[in-house]
Amino acid sequence: MTNPDKTGLKPTCREAHRLVSEGMDRELSFVERTRLRLHLMVCDGCTRFNGQMALLRTAMRRFPDEHGK
């Protein structure tokens, strides 16, 4: 018997965190983005995590690199 959360539309919090993190390194597929958005609509904790990751991403882009750029 398969876990309905693992195969259903709404991912678990663990999978949502993985998708948020992977989305920083690569473009998520349409299905991944849709599943993540569905989860974020109902999960305040993961929504906060997503916001924190976005803030870190923005801060790192503004931080000068070690090579003086």
Score class of each variant (00 low, 15 high):
22 E>C: 04
62 R>V: 05
42 V>C: 02
25 D>N: 12
1 M>C: 09
36 L>D: 06
59 A>N: 10
35 R>Q: 07
61 R>E: 14
38 L>M: 15
26 R>I: 00
53 M>T: 09
48 R>M: 12
67 H>V: 07
31 V>Q: 11
56 L>K: 09
6 K>E: 15
43 C>L: 01
28 L>V: 04
44 D>S: 14
65 D>G: 11
13 C>A: 13
23 G>S: 00
32 E>W: 04
24 M>N: 06
27 E>A: 09
21 S>H: 08
45 G>K: 10
8 G>L: 02
62 R>M: 11
2 T>E: 13
65 D>L: 07
37 R>M: 13
33 R>V: 01
55 L>F: 12
43 C>G: 04
62 R>N: 09
8 G>S: 02
31 V>I: 12
65 D>T: 10
62 R>Y: 06
68 G>S: 05
25 D>H: 11
64 P>A: 02
66 E>D: 13
8 G>V: 00
26 R>P: 00
40 L>W: 03
54 A>Q: 15
11 P>W: 00
69 K>C: 08
27 E>C: 01
30 F>H: 12
50 N>F: 07
29 S>L: 02
31 V>C: 03
49 F>S: 06
17 H>A: 15
14 R>C: 03
58 T>L: 11
58 T>R: 15
1 M>V: 13
63 F>S: 12
10 K>L: 12
15 E>L: 06
28 L>C: 02
53 M>Q: 12
31 V>W: 08
57 R>D: 15
54 A>L: 10
49 F>P: 01
12 T>H: 01
17 H>C: 09
50 N>L: 02
7 T>V: 15
8 G>E: 02
50 N>W: 06
56 L>V: 12
21 S>Q: 11
59 A>C: 09
61 R>A: 13
18 R>V: 06
29 S>M: 02
46 C>F: 00
42 V>A: 11
67 H>Q: 09
45 G>H: 07
43 C>V: 02
41 M>S: 14
22 E>V: 02
58 T>V: 09
29 S>W: 02
6 K>L: 15
4 P>T: 03
26 R>D: 00
3 N>Q: 07
39 H>Y: 05
13 C>N: 07
42 V>Y: 06
15 E>V: 07
58 T>H: 10
18 R>P: 00
3 N>C: 13
